[in-house]
Design a binder for these strands. Structure first.
Length: 664
DNA sequence: AAGCCCCAG
DNA sequence: CATTCTGGGGCTT
């Protein structure tokens, strides 16, 4: 590397090329990328396609194709008539509705989570896994020297001397200890890919390296159904061979164009351009990041993907120029969209409307969007799923059209080429024992009790069931010993998701009102007012409290606090597994034969094993499964002799129970 | 918070 | 045949 001046980039280069400290490459990242995802899903769903050229189309484009089709020269986003010219036998499958791809993506994700909770989704078909912790634990716990000697899959760049073991090759490249980590991770990547193939029939590539950028890039070196590790000291040279800067994630059309105006077209040129030069057009911050990327440097963390922040749909359309057509489209989109969020126990309180107007000036991709609030009462729960309340479709549609008319002047001729709807601002609701506590919390408590207290009280952690232990045992599992794997699977998925056990907000309000009435001495007025300040405050807390929402190190623990009885009954498994959505259990008859609304039936208590001090109204409002669980607990713990006083003193662990106690 | 731009697959 | 259908994050107001 030759530089004419002693500028920043030389220093960057310096640190990149010469440092070989003990902490040089502390992380281990695996990037997993499905081979031609949509097309492969179609093949799995219809195996007769496997020996044919397949293209997945959206509107006029072939958005993906399988490898057979690619041999004909079919490329991503190729126009259909072009594609069929190249390959008249091309089988076209409509892929405008992404539902099946989303479902497959979810299943892939579940498998990933059996190896680490630290999974970041990139689109539907790619995932980053930070397996540093898991690999380090393996290195501590197991002594399988054989496994450490050789990499599974390819090494990049290719090794010259065949006499060396892979381990020796890596130790020559870097002595920070990353050799063992990367090699072991290549075995894990193989296990992940094997499971994805065995369980789902999907093939994929994997890249293993010490950061996200390199893991993704090196995974693309050997392409379909292969995996590759990067020699850690080859980062800068490897990235330098990639050609156009657009091959770096983060550099899109616009930045590439700006870079080109700076005379930078390839990654190599990006390595060599001066930071000062770049900063003139892109600013110091972005320029520095781009420069670092060009040397393969990337310290961005793998960020666990949570629930989506928005769920939307959009349809491009030939040309909509009258209001009624737009309304029809929106109605259709709305119906589909509500189905798409049915399994999400959260309720959106905002909607965004997107339109694309036909513009004679080539601004085809220009979109406009506006948003408005929607009421939680537009939704209700039915059989554990979110559905629209009666009449809500028209109400939401009216809002949508109102927003639409803010963007489109109906008095003038218009041409709409795309319409979209998107729900967002989802109200966070908590699952597991916390949700039970939420459900049972007395209105009087709501005023005084902090959310932190609430979650702490709900936690009763059993030491024998920590997530770390479970995860590490998963590593020892081969596909034949599926029991421990499925156990850890439920733990992993629990920690990342929410169940349907949460009562509907409607129920919550009903319950809160009831409790308010019951405690009317404490709450003299407006107990039936849904907008009462106290309730609003609680809602705010639920939305805003970081401790309550995140609890990063505690999420595993909160999972383990779920009563074991519920676990063994398969309750949470059913509710949380996306592959087996629960419905049968929620259809089950209540042990108390409650009314359909879950409201009344006061006299059911004494015949049914309820402790005398338990409020049947509260109990009846619970999900059936929770009722059963609690009944079981009470049967085994002789509740009849308990008074509220003895409960609070003797069974501090059974904190849930205290919520049932009638007017204390 | 709203709306636009840019990015990703 | 008109850049397909999504979702996230950042910037400006």
């Amino acid at each position: 590397m030759v530089f004419n001046d002693l500028s920043n980039e030389e220093q960057i280069m310096d640190t990149l090329e010469t440092s070989n400290n003990a902490e040089d490459h502390p992380r281990v990242i695996i990037h997993v990328d499905m081979d031609c995802f949509y097309a492969q899903v179609e093949e799995v769903l219809n195996p007769s396609l496997k020996d044919k050229p397949v293209g997945v189309k959206q509107r006029f484009n072939v958005v993906t194709s399988n490898y057979i089709a690619r041999e004909y020269g079919i490329k991503k986003m190729m126009l259909i008539n072009e594609a069929t010219k190249l390959c008249p036998d091309l089988v076209l499958v409509n892929g405008e509705d992404l539902t099946k791809y989303k479902q497959m993506s979810t299943k892939i994700n579940e498998i990933m989570h059996k190896f680490t909770p630290n999974v970041e989704k990139l689109g539907l078909d790619e995932n980053y896994l930070d397996v540093t912790k898991e690999i380090n634990e393996q290195l501590e716990q197991k002594i399988d020297l054989e496994q450490l000697q050789n990499v599974v899959g390819f090494i990049h760049p290719p090794v010259e001397e065949p006499s060396l073991t892979d381990r020796e090759v890596f130790r020559r490249a870097c002595c920070c200890g990353c050799d063992r980590r990367i090699i072991l991770a290549s075995h894990m990547a193989k296990q992940i890919r094997d499971r994805i193939f065995c369980e789902l029939g999907m093939k994929c590539c994997a890249g293993i390296a010490h950061n996200k950028l390199l893991a993704k890039l090196v995974g693309g070196v050997h392409k379909p159904n292969k995996q590759t590790v990067l020699l850690p000291n080859c980062a800068a040279s490897f990235v330098g061979t990639l050609g156009t800067v657009k091959n770096l994630t983060g550099i899109g059309e616009k930045t590439a164009q700006i870079l080109e105006e700076c005379g930078v077209r390839t990654v190599r040129e990006l390595q060599e351009v001066s930071l000062h030069q770049l900063s003139k057009r892109l600013g110091f911050e972005q320029s520095s990041k781009l420069k670092e990327m060009s040397f393969g440097k990337d310290d961005t963390p793998v960020k666990q993907t949570g629930k989506p922040k928005s769920v939307g749909l959009e349809d491009s359309c030939p040309a909509i120029s009258i209001r009624a057509d737009a309304e029809d489209k929106f109605r259709h989109l709305l119906i589909r969209l509500v189905k798409n969020i049915a399994d999400d126990c959260r309720i959106p309180i905002a909607i965004k409307v997107t339109v694309r107007k036909h513009d004679s000036v080539k601004k085809t991709s220009h979109r406009e969007c506006k948003q408005d609030k929607i009421l939680p009462s537009y939704f209700r729960h039915k059989d554990g799923k979110l559905v629209l309340a009666d009449g809500a479709q028209d109400k939401i549609l009216a809002i949508v059209m109102k927003v639409f008319e803010r963007m489109v002047d109906l008095g003038q001729p218009f041409n709409i080429t795309l319409l979209g709807l998107s729900f967002f601002k989802f109200q966070e609701r908590k699952a597991g024992s916390k949700s039970i506590a939420n459900f049972l919390i007395k209105k009087s408590d709501i005023e005084v009790q902090s959310i932190t207290n609430l979650s702490n009280e709900s936690l009763t952690l059993s030491d024998s069931f920590t997530s770390t232990r479970s995860y590490s045992t998963a590593m020892d599992c081969d596909p034949s010993s599926s029991t421990c794997l499925s156990d850890t699977a439920s733990v992993a998925s629990l920690s990342g998701s929410e169940s349907d056990v949460e009562p509907s907000p409607k129920k919550c309000r009903r319950l809160a009102s009831f409790l308010a009435r019951k405690n009317s001495s404490l709450l003299p007025s407006n107990e039936d007012d849904c907008s009462s300040p106290s309730k609003l405050r609680v809602a705010d807390l639920r939305l805003n409290s970081k401790e309550y929402d995140q609890e990063p190190s505690n999420s595993g623990a909160s999972v383990t606090s779920i009563p074991l009885g519920l676990k063994s009954a398969g309750f949470f498994k059913n509710h949380l597994s996306t592959s087996t959505p629960a419905k049968s259990s929620s259809q089950a008859e209540s042990p108390l034969a409650r009314g359909p609304t879950g409201g009344g039936n006061l006299k059911a208590s004494n015949e049914s094993g309820l402790p005398s001090n338990v409020d049947p109204n509260v109990f009846n409002a619970l999900p059936v499964e929770v009722q059963q669980e609690l009944l079981e607990n009470w049967r085994t713990s002789n509740p009849a002799s308990s008074s509220s006083a003895s409960l609070s003193s003797s069974s501090s662990k059974n904190t849930l129970h205290r919520y049932f106690v009638k007017n204390a």
